[in-house]
């Protein structure tokens, strides 16, 4: 039997909201897709757009950026910058005709374990539908 395709998704999570939310999802024994690899950061504002680009170009099937809801940032305004960065990455990828669907932004607060489980499942399913990232096949990047 052929092995079922499980995507590899990198998630950049801020420690105060999204990571705690993910933790809550775990403690609540909610189902979280095994495709997510979490990288914990102090703030979503730490997500250098290069992290996302590098993850994408190095062959991860999807990249998630997660932080506190706008207005709830532990450092007051980090996630506002994240939002602009996400839009920037999105716009550049769009102009270059790269796959924007593989980059994803979501706000998950510390109490939203259910939301975390839900959005990760949805994103993971979407990526499974899209199939492996074509950069995996490009040798001479």
């Amino acid at each position: 039997m052929e092995k079922e395709y499980t995507p590899q998704i990198i998630g950049f999570l801020c420690t105060w909201c999204s990571y705690t939310g993910a933790d809550l999802a775990g403690v609540s024994r909610l189902q979280i897709p095994p495709s997510i690899r979490v990288i914990r950061l102090m703030c979503s504002g730490r997500i250098d757009p290069l992290f996302v680009t590098k993850a994408f170009i190095s062959g991860s099937d999807g990249v998630m950026m997660m932080g506190c809801h706008p207005g709830d940032c532990h450092y007051q305004k980090g996630n506002y910058y994240t939002r602009r960065r996400y839009k920037t990455i999105n716009s550049v990828f769009e102009s270059l005709h790269l796959d924007t669907e593989r980059i994803f932004l979501s706000w998950v607060s510390a109490s939203e374990g259910v939301k975390y489980a839900h959005v990760t499942k949805e994103f993971s399913d979407k990526i499974t539908g899209l199939g492996p990232n074509p950069v995996k096949k490009e040798i001479f990047l």
Partner: peptide, 19 residues
């Protein structure tokens, strides 16, 4: 992948600089 471009990361460099 069975191969690599040397020097690597040209697309990464250009997209990164654009962003």
């Amino acid at each position: 992948k069975g191969g690599a471009r040397v020097p690597s990361g040209t697309i990464f460099f250009h997209t990164g600089r654009m962003i």
